[in-house]
Design a binder for these strands. Structure first.
Lengths: 341, 341
DNA sequence: CTGTTAGCGCTTTCAC
DNA sequence: GTGAAAGCGCTAACAG
């Protein structure tokens, strides 16, 4: 075989071997930290590799070893701090484990299943977010051929899942609002948009029931600023009656609160507002937003680790992994600043 | 050669060929949309591929064609909306161009140059952000072996660069503040932290000079919330005198403004505050933040496209590419709400 | 139009 | 301990 040129650096295992005066097998051995190699050979190879700044071509290595040392991650999109944090956690842990991460955003792909299958072709496994943007069928189809871990999706028995706690925290924050003496508290968000919103609504319902109260139907709107504004207008116009809203995320809560105040409604006096996520803005607004903080970065890290264990075949305790969240009491719920509860 | 099993789907080009009753060459041909293939063969192959859900193994293909159909992107980190937007734009355009994106975050890598070299091994080219977190030497080293495009870095002649406009906008926003009759306006941010901050300061200086005023030295602090708070304390204590601050980003501006108000200083009456980026929070705070909006997503898309052109050898108009920004006047500069200028 | 075959760069037996 | 050689799955000449 010829001493192939080409490739990024231009240097191949052949160049290194030649330079070191050994066979490519030896080069491969020392670079893989493999078995017995004489110290002399090792030195020569190391030196040559260093001088040539040799880095094995990933594709060639992948083909030979039949894995990619890369994790796939598919997220709906990237707006807001949630996905970014998740991604940071994921990338960080993946990198620690020596895995590259190839990222794919579902948004704007017209053939998501196809794109995912193509993605699967260059990674050892993939993590994907459970949401309406990423149909469960997509993960089901993959599972069996490649390890998959579902993030913030439905706990399933057939696929690894990592989630942050939803139901209990939702019950807690709802109870807190109810505890402020509110009578008509509404849940803002569509339980069908994804497992997390669904579970938060479940907690909302539970809080009511444990007090013997009748929970209201959810107000099914998307978790975007614009939807919050529109909704606030409905409250202002008297179209929707309420004295407290439990929002499925902060973006929504913030938008509602802002518009409500612009319209002359007092928050929390007239209507209390609470959110979910604890985004940066939450503590900047007046009144500061009561919300639930999720350890999102950790969630991402966990997903990467879990995936890696599956890929490498390390035994993994089965079952869904759920990590706890934290209620953050500020003022928008009716508590006074710096004097919660 | 045996009919290899293995791989994600388990199906290889051999399985497809066998199933279709043709040679692997024919399979490859129709799948590459290559030259003359009989309609009959095409149908059979297509059918077989479909039934087997065959997707070529990326590594094998890469090795054969000697490119990866993937773009690398290295970012410092991912907090705040800036990088996320950039990434979304990049991913979106890259996907449109049929490129996967493998992402690397500089943060936390102790051997960044090494990591980048390894990354370079699995992509056709990479885009990286110009910042102090990613030394220019890193890109210089790569350039020559792989196409590189620098985002928001120093316009260089040896490397492709895409940037959003800084100096002129900075001059504009500073002039605006000066126009409000402020006498001691300060620039918050470290010009040495990166090309963008440096250019913004240059605009700050220019604004002063064109009015025959003496610009103050920059207050060199990092663009983080905590640094803003600390700085606001210095103003409150009288340690630092000023009646207007031009901040190098919104996060900083927001933090300063918040602390100032907590300390009883009126914004904008006592001190005006303006920022840069137009993050979500900017329009939620009271007073709403005057700032500069950057088309960040577009910047990312541009980077992906430029990179792709380089990779594929399409002729590219040389020279730095800079896209315009937009001054967003709200109230924190001294303008009254809904009655700018 | 189609099949055979020679690599792409790397890992890994298998002999020596 | 070390080299020769056989693949990994795919593409691209090269003959028919």
């Amino acid at each position: 075989m010829a001493t192939g040129a080409a490739h990024s650096n231009g240097t191949t295992i052949y160049s290194v071997a030649e330079r070191a005066g050994v066979s490519i097998a030896s080069v491969s051995r020392v670079l893989q930290g493999s078995t017995a190699v004489s110290d002399k050979t090792r030195q020569r190879v190391l030196a040559a590799a260093e001088e040539l700044k040799y880095v094995p071509l990933a594709a060639a290595r992948s083909l030979a070893v039949r894995h990619h040392e890369a994790h796939g991650l598919v997220l709906p999109e990237l707006s807001g701090p949630y996905y970014s944090e998740l991604l940071m956690g994921f990338e960080s842990r993946a990198a620690d484990l020596g895995q590259s991460v190839v990222l794919m955003l579902a948004q704007g792909k017209d053939d998501l299943p196809g794109a995912v299958r193509k993605l699967a072709t260059r990674v050892d496994g993939l993590a994907m977010l459970g949401s309406s943007a990423i149909p469960e069928s997509t993960v089901t189809a993959l599972h069996g051929s490649k390890p998959v871990v579902l993030i913030a999706g439905d706990p399933r028995t057939d696929v690894d899942t990592v989630t942050s706690e939803n139901t209990h925290s939702a019950e807690e924050i709802t109870s807190h609002v109810l505890g402020h003496g509110r009578s008509t508290v509404r849940f803002l968000g569509d339980p069908d948009s994804g497992p997390d919103v669904r579970d938060r609504y479940a907690g909302f319902v539970a809080a009511h029931e444990s007090l013997g109260r009748e929970p209201l139907e959810p107000v099914r709107i998307a978790l975007r600023e614009s939807d919050g504004t529109t909704l606030a207008d409905r409250i202002l116009s008297g179209d929707l009656q309420t004295d407290a809203v439990v929002c499925a995320n902060d973006e929504l809560a913030l938008a509602v609160m802002k518009r409500l105040r612009e319209g002359g409604t007092r928050v929390p006096d007239d209507v209390a507002v609470v959110g979910w996520d604890d985004v940066m803005t939450a503590r900047y607004v007046e009144p500061a937003l009561t919300t639930v903080r999720q350890p999102v970065r950790e969630l991402g890290a966990l997903a990467a680790e879990r995936l890696h264990r599956r890929v490498t075949g390390i035994a993994v305790e089965d079952g869904p992994q759920v990590i706890p969240t934290q209620l953050v009491i500020r003022s928008s719920c009716g508590c006074r600043p710096d004097a919660p509860h």
